[in-house]
Each structure stands twice: as structure tokens, then as C-alpha cells.
């Protein structure tokens, strides 16, 4: 395994206690060049995770707090008249950073949401007729409060599909909670974090993850999973081709994190819940039992 990534994981786990799986998933998501959606109730450490990720990977980091009166220009930036030069100068918005923490994305109006989501998809923004590239690498880590809370605009399915993973943090277990209660202030810890990797190193890791060997046998399994999601009557719609590709990249990243040069079914199975959680919904008339309901159905598909 890449030792630098190992150290990065250790460092983040030192800040966010007892969440090894989620931290690993988040890192795999970034390695697979996907955007990450973290959903949970306030106060479980969503922002801490995003912040720690950015710090550890040595990337510059902006946080956008989404509110109901946020405008697209507040995200993208605007050209403002400059009296000294007598012309309009572009003042870049907070989106021009390598890691964006879009906090409570479901609090903003759909208009502001879509400004962000377009940037995520294109890797560039168009403002006043001028196209401006976003920095590379470019990640969006969005957090979202569970949709049933008051004053929220839940993201439509089409936009949810742009996030590779949806991760749920959940409450810490008692031991982690005890360590949290006894330990230092998180904000101070975050401030003390140093970058373990440079962005260039991280991009090399991304390329290496992309090179992880994928055997036909694994593709058979992946297609069996995708096919099942499309044919099973319990799902409203199946997985999109984009989701299938994302699943493969994520499995490769997961295998890379495990230090393997090939991906195996376990890798697919490990990332599957995070990939399908926000993509598969129950067919009309069926109740969704819980978050990982869809993943459980798919994990019951025989491995060819």
C-alpha cells in the first residue's frame, strides 16, 4: 500500500475517532475522482471529516455554507466594476479551490445547488460568457442533513447521481465517544494538521488507482449487479451507466488502498452500499426499510 496514503488515513482517523470505514471510503472516493456526499444529523463530524481530508491531502480548501438565500454568484464569483481601472474585474467565488466543502447543501435553493453541481460535472465554470477552469484536483465534499428536516430542498435524483459516494457517519461508538470527550478540541487539532501528501502526489495516486487490473471475471460480477438493479421489480429504476462506471472506479480505488494491483469482488462489495445508497429507490408501493436496503438486495446476487 502507498505509505503516504496510509499515513493520511492514520492522521484523519486521529481527528475523527472511530470512523475508520467511513474515512477509508471517503479517501477511496477522492482517489476515484468522485465527489462525496456526507449525510447525517448535525454535529457528528461531517465538517471535521471534510476539513481533515483537505488538510491532510495538502489542498487548498474553501467552505461554502449553503443557506436558503445563497445566490449562484456567491459560489462562482462575479465581475465587479473597479473604479481605479475603469473596468470590470472578476472576483472569483469560493468555488475556486481544490476542495470545496459545500455545507448543508440541501438548505440552498435549487438554483444555487445547480450552480455548484454544474461546476462539479464540467470541472469549469462559465461566468459572464467567459469560461474559467477550476483547479485540479477538484473535489466537492457536500454535507446534507437528512431530508426530512424542516426548511430543506432535497437534491433531485439526477443531481444525486453526480456524487460518487454517499456516506453516513452515524454516532460514534462509546469508546470513541469517550476518547472524543476526553481529548483535545477538534478545531485545534484540525489547525495543527499538516499535509501528508502534495496534490501532485495525490494525483499520481489517482492515476495509479486507475491502473488497477480489472479482470473479465470482475466485470461479469459488476454487470450481474447492474443487471439485477435494472431487472429487480423492487427498484424504481436501475443503476445508470455512470453509476456502473463509478462503481468500478471506486472498487479499483478500494483495491489500491488495500495495496493490491487488481480488484476483486470484495472491493466491489465494500464500496457498493455507498454507491447505490442514493441511487436506488423502492418501486412505487414498496416501503424502504432502511438505508442499506438496496445494497442488501444486490449483495445477495450470486458471484459468477
Amino acid at each position: 500500500m502507498n505509505p503516504a496514503l496510509h499515513r493520511a488515513l492514520d492522521q484523519i482517523n486521529g481527528v475523527l475517532l472511530g470512523k475508520e470505514t467511513q474515512v477509508r471510503l471517503s479517501l477511496a472516493c477522492l482517489l476515484a475522482r468522485g465527489h462525496l456526499l456526507i449525510e447525517d444529523t448535525p454535529g457528528v463530524g461531517k465538517t471535521t471529516l471534510a476539513h481533515a481530508l483537505a488538510q491532510t491531502l495538502g489542498m487548498d480548501f474553501h467552505r461554502i455554507q449553503f443557506t436558503s438565500d445563497l445566490l449562484p454568484a456567491d459560489i462562482l464569483g462575479a465581475a465587479i466594476y473597479d473604479r481605479d481601472s475603469g473596468g470590470f474585474t472578476f472576483h472569483p467565488g469560493p468555488i475556486f479551490a481544490q476542495v470545496i466543502l459545500a455545507d448543508e447543501i440541501n438548505r440552498a435553493s435549487p438554483k444555487a445547488q445547480s450552480a455548484l453541481l454544474e461546476a462539479m460535472e464540467e470541472g469549469q465554470v462559465s461566468i459572464e460568457g467567459e469560461t474559467r477552469p477550476l483547479p485540479t484536483p477538484f473535489f466537492v465534499i457536500a454535507t446534507q442533513n437528512p431530508g426530512d428536516q424542516a426548511g430543506a430542498f432535497p437534491l433531485p435524483e439526477s443531481q444525486l447521481d453526480r456524487f460518487l459516494f454517499r456516506v453516513r457517519l452515524g454516532y460514534p461508538d462509546p469508546a470513541a465517544e469517550r476518547a472524543l470527550l476526553k481529548g483535545e478540541d477538534r478545531r485545534e487539532l484540525l489547525a495543527g494538521l499538516r499535509g501528508v501528501l502534495t496534490p501532485v502526489e495525490f494525483m499520481a495516486a489517482q492515476r495509479a488507482a486507475r491502473e488497477v487490473h480489472v479482470a473479465d471475471a470482475l466485470l461479469d460480477y459488476l454487470q450481474a449487479l447492474i443487471g439485477a438493479s435494472r431487472s429487480d421489480p423492487r427498484f424504481a429504476t436501475g443503476l445508470s451507466p455512470r453509476a456502473g462506471l463509478g462503481l468500478l472506479r471506486a472498487a479499483q480505488a478500494w483495491a489500491y488502498l488495500a495495496g493490491r494491483d487488481y480488484a476483486q469482488p470484495e472491493d466491489l462489495r465494500a464500496v457498493l452500499p455507498a454507491v447505490v445508497r442514493h441511487r436506488l429507490f423502492p418501486a412505487v408501493g414498496l416501503a424502504q426499510a432502511d438505508d442499506d436496503w438496496a445494497a442488501r438486495i444486490l449483495l445477495d446476487i450470486a458471484i459468477p
Binding site: Q264, P265, E266, R269, L299, D300, I301, A302, I303
Partner: peptide, 8 residues
């Protein structure tokens, strides 16, 4: 089980 991955 048919759906059991080898490592599991």
C-alpha cells in the same frame, strides 16, 4: 452461499 465473496 452463491453471493458470498471468497474472502468473506
Amino acid at each position: 452461499a452463491p453471493a458470498e465473496a471468497p474472502e468473506e
